[in-house]
Design a protein around this nucleic acid. Sequence first.
DNA 1: AAATTCAATGCAAACGTTTGAAATTTTTTC
DNA 2: GAAAAAATTTCAAACGTTTGCATTGAATTT
Lengths: 336, 336
Amino acid sequence: MRKATITDIAKELNLTPSTVSRALNGSSLVKQETKEAVEAKAKDMGYVRNVMASNLRKGVAQTVGIIVPRINRQFFSNVISGAESVLNDAGYNVLICQTEERYEKEVYAIDTLLWNQVAGILISHSIETSDTSHLSKALNSNVRLVQFDRVFYNIPDVKVVNDNYHGAYTATKHLIDNGYTRIGTLAGYMTSAQYRERLEGYKRALLDAGMEVDERLIFKDTIIRETGYARAKEALDLGCDAMYSAGDFSALGAMQAAKEKGLKIPDDFGIVGTANENFTELMTPSMSSISLKPYQMGKAAAQAFLNDDGSNPDSMITIEMELMKRESSNRHKESK
Amino acid sequence: MRKATITDIAKELNLTPSTVSRALNGSSLVKQETKEAVEAKAKDMGYVRNVMASNLRKGVAQTVGIIVPRINRQFFSNVISGAESVLNDAGYNVLICQTEERYEKEVYAIDTLLWNQVAGILISHSIETSDTSHLSKALNSNVRLVQFDRVFYNIPDVKVVNDNYHGAYTATKHLIDNGYTRIGTLAGYMTSAQYRERLEGYKRALLDAGMEVDERLIFKDTIIRETGYARAKEALDLGCDAMYSAGDFSALGAMQAAKEKGLKIPDDFGIVGTANENFTELMTPSMSSISLKPYQMGKAAAQAFLNDDGSNPDSMITIEMELMKRESSNRHKESK
DNA sequence: AAATTCAATGCAAACGTTTGAAATTTTTTC
DNA sequence: GAAAAAATTTCAAACGTTTGCATTGAATTT
């Protein structure tokens, strides 16, 4: 059974496709009576609009592409979720591509989206990506580009990023306020801007409090549990009594190291992680962490796309991070 | 600057769109030399194929829709991930819709996908969904339908589900093998087939081991931490020394209850959860859990779509579950 | 050298919709 | 009741691609 088209409907009602099309799109040019007749007949015939044809005629699809390294990461799936809610409300469909952290797949994703005539692309780059020529391809078409989280600053588009600097600052200050005096950091890798920014926030917080920055307590090679554990041990030997970790997994390792040394958390050792992974609040003791706001970031990125009229090609939106104070750092429960 | 089309390329090379089209699609009808010229010129002119036009002409899109309750659930995002990997390799794009557990949005999602002329729909239903008329709309079109995880058995299509029965059976047997003798269960809600199946597996394991099923140790109203905690307390008062929980969060609550009672885990109390949420392996003690295999389920669902030639309208694929043995239940470490 | 094959390309219609301009019908105005 | 204005509908072209069939020219056979 062939699918019904507007032409079929038109024939049935002795109208032309034009009128049927307009009726279905709620045009004010068509009589109320006709509209109702068309709608009834459409329903009756099980008509479903052919978006391909419609978009082809209109020249652009009501579709936005989102490119992420991995969709099954809590962070990215929440970004997508947020973006989708905004975009769906605005009448857009969402096409999702994952790059699995590979440059090659990122390039292919851009191509795919361009083939599909998307109206916009929201992208967070793969780790491998260093060259940006594939982005120019997108910019040269008339798609609106928004980068989020992992962005390149040399691209003239809208960027949405986490406020890493202030997040780390707040976390470190929180430790200081709780009376810790030798505060180290598991800083992540310096190849990534977000870790560099977090380190800056950490340092600034110490300096603002009149404390000195001890380079021996700054570890620039840890993001996973195992290395966090190892580096924390070193730090503890140097008299460190608290750490700000740029990642939750390394923070987990640090907690383990402190426990093994027989230190009480938070009394003898305090720790704040980053990302607010969902295990952080489920542990005992629960772990303080600076929460990223992926859902909000997704919404912001989508909104940026919707607002993008080309008038402001190069702008930046920062999403604040929120300190989740939990047991691992709250020494002064009464003071809070 | 207007986008280049095959007609533009044709003009430049004194060819016709037909030949250019064929060249770009690698048809054997066109001379190697011409192919190369076309490809070079296409690249040169920054040509990107218009999928809308192509699909319109071909009558069907190389696109598959996936409908899930929520994309930011570890389980579903992994299903999507798995499905996408298979579908992308087969040359399909993936359109993702989330229903946010609402029936209305599920209906709308189906409509959207039909408008987009998708070749297939992979769906896991929202909690609210009880009526299936929206699915018939899809079945009446020529889209291939695959249900996964949360399925309706009265729909003639391919279904992919977890092997809940055997998973629960294995988990319970594992507890028995570790010498626990009064094993209860946090069974989840009986409105859902998956929880009913898990309960059956639990019972069967007990019976097979010659143990009796004590209805007082079966709790049919818990899936979250808080209720898990409360029910486990009741169970402990009844002399329960181990539990199989149909969810990890209620299992977490149960662990907490046991700890509070001063019981040692796993020596005095054993527990196995379900779903293998990522916090389970990060806790101390780490929690045993039956792992769902969402990625594999996604791959299976996608594969089912690809294989669906209409010859076997009503079939079922079960995805095995895997017991992750961890500290919370492994009393006999040496016996392992 | 004519007839036959074959490879390569061109022609033209089609996919289903939208939209500006033209045509028709209805309503309003004088 | 004719002219003007407004409301509604039709006409026809377009969006960019694909594809069955026709055509061309070259290579091969007779």
